[in-house]
Design a protein around this nucleic acid. Sequence first.
RNA 1: GGCCCCAUCGUCUAGCGGUUAGGACAUCGGCCUCUCACGCCGGUAACCCGGGUUCAAUUCCCGGUGGGGUCGCCA
Length: 482
Amino acid sequence: MRVRFAPSPTGYLHIGGVRTALFNWLWARKKAGAFVLRIEDTDQERSTEASKQVILDSLKWLGLTWDEGPLFGGLGGGAHGPYLQMERLALYEKHADQLVAEGKAYRCTCTKEQLDAAREALKAKDPKANFRYPGTCRDAGHPKSSKHVVRFKVPTEGVVRYADLVFGEVVTPNAAQQDFVLLRSDGVPLYNFGAVVDDLTMGITLVARGRDHMVNTPPQIMLYEALGAQPPQFAHLPMMLAPSGEKLSKRHGAVSVGEYLDNGFSPTALLNYLVRFGWSFGDEEVFSLQDMIDKFDWARCNKSDGKFDAKKLAAINHEHLKQERLTPLETYVASVTPFLEKRGLDVVRDPRQRDLLRAAIPHVRERAKTYLEAAESLDFFLRDAPVFDEKATAKFLVAAAKPTLTEMADLVEGVADFTIEGLSAAFAKWLEAKGVQIKDVAQPARVALTGRSVSPGLYETIHVLGKARTVERLRAGAARIA
RNA sequence: GGCCCCAUCGUCUAGCGGUUAGGACAUCGGCCUCUCACGCCGGUAACCCGGGUUCAAUUCCCGGUGGGGUCGCCA
């Protein structure tokens, strides 16, 4: 069993593309097959080395590792390479020659300009008209030269029929096709031909891709048959649209994987959101990577297009960050660290900082929807002194709070059982003696300790900070009050 | 317009002839509470329309309508 993901390196990796890659990857992992990555760089106008790197980088960040494909960070290689189409040109020429020799394709000397003009003329006369290549060179028998394309001789009768793993039986009349181009005049293949020759020579047994490619399947099947080969299985996935129902693009929010990385999303959570898009497993919504592999199946895919929902993605992400099962502590530490570093906090070299981080994370994980937010909430734990929020300071670090903070510092200094329970008990006793409630004193203490009016619970915060820091901050807080 | 595809709450979806049509997100109440969250309880909210088939259709069939994809020497 061999599947592939074949992006073209013409920009960032789109999350719709990630969904396609994911479904292929899951199937390969589930069936112990091979997940092949192929770069379709035959559009020389738009393909760039930089976007190829971005795509490889994005896939690696997501954990969608390829068994065969371009070499990158320890991945790639394989017996069916090269995995860049521009390095496979001889293969396409060979197959095109074969088809021409067998009379299944022909050389066409009509120029792009001529055809464009004809197309324009027809459009001008009737905007809804259906332009088709008129077949000028179909039986001309042009010899091989430098100035021709190779076209496929589409059978004029019959139908193409295939059993889509998601959509069921699809039947298309051959007459709906025109004689499409296989090879450009410079010898570079067009999409359908390149994809078929590569899928064939790479031994791909199942092609899963977006429904926007469904229209390519009949001509591709014709090519397999012309080449005397058995077509692979096909599975088309419903489309992911923008909330407005139009094509999902940048103006609908983040669509490139890089933006999710930068905004502090968990790669697994992103995949979890995407796997539920066009696929379901009863009422289950939250999956680990292994859950997805175990449960994924084409039969549970559905056929109707959907709309991207950023709020649901955020909720799934939050769910992943909350659960230790889905995001183990060490993963959390590693993932949040870059965001802490962006705030000027070094947790890589200082083991004490790492310990503090480990202790603090359980208290912020249910509060932070992203690693970016988590870094914000974790900030004061890791800093020598909190950064004071102006509004919070003005509201809570007021004259009446000054003696309270000093007393609280004394209290904490004397707590022998420095656990959350011990602190809670000590505070309870103190509060009772004072005749006040925790809510009367919590906010000034919170601001003194964290610099903000929002934080984890007071006792939890004190516990993680430790006695010395707590006492120091409470006294410093009191000192800030004139 | 040709060809292809689709149709359950606002959104993602469960359902595979008989259900008070379920869940999640979002939304609106409430509880919990030292802040913010988390958590918990509850509410509003859907089978596109019309014909068949059937004792019985959200479910099967046909038609309509609506939406989407695609019609390149792009992928």
